[in-house]
Amino acid sequence: MTDDKLIIAGIEFQSRLWVGTGKYKDFAETKKAIEASGTDVVTVSVRRVNIIDKSKENLLDYIDPRKYKILPNTAGCFTAKDAIRTAMLAAEAGITKLVKLEVIGDQKTLFPDNEATLEAARTLLKEGLIVLPYVSDDPIMAKKLVDLGCPAVMPLAAPIGSGLGIRNPYNLRIIMESVKVPIIVDAGVGTASDVALAMELGCDAVLLNTAIAGAKDPIAMAEAMKYGVLAGRLAYMAGRIPKKLYATASSPIEGLIGS
């Protein structure tokens, strides 16, 4: 498996499990969960610095940007303009040119506003950012984003934080056939079998946050997710047997006593 590399825009990623840093009890738990997951990619949000409370700790004191690839998101943005502003600010911090572009269309579902996502992606790609767009599991939209120049796409499995898992594996398979860039399933996974399924379908990576942070034991779930992704990827590469209606015996017919 050593030559099964995940490369996006010339960047080599060691792990096919990407993990968010939100919703944990505290930074110490965040750090432990990230370590247990074995990931080398973490997402972060872009927010105002706390001016008043100087004692407030910094996430990057716990998650070392030299050890992990930082993937800033544009979470909380409902317009292309806000997403562009947030992404450009993230890039100016000087740590990375990667951005997970999210332009949200609806508070309840947190589904992406695909039209605004396209518009923001167009601008950010021109500015030289490496845009990884969060998109609905729509092959047409995925292709439009890739045609613009996005080096990967991030279709949702289900609404963010819903834990519903891969609601439409068929769409994900169609996306894989429609675009020639890595596909990172993002949002909505709930447990290890969900990520294994995504990887068995042939997806290149899975990004999740709530499934780990919201689990009863986040550290254990992070480890479970690590194995889920590894198992799913290995199974995909191994080439599964076809599904059949009837049985085919596993034991030989020859040499049966009494025959």
Partner: peptide, 10 residues
Amino acid sequence: VEIVSFMGGG
């Protein structure tokens, strides 16, 4: 003036 940095997020 807005001063931003990276915080926890998914």
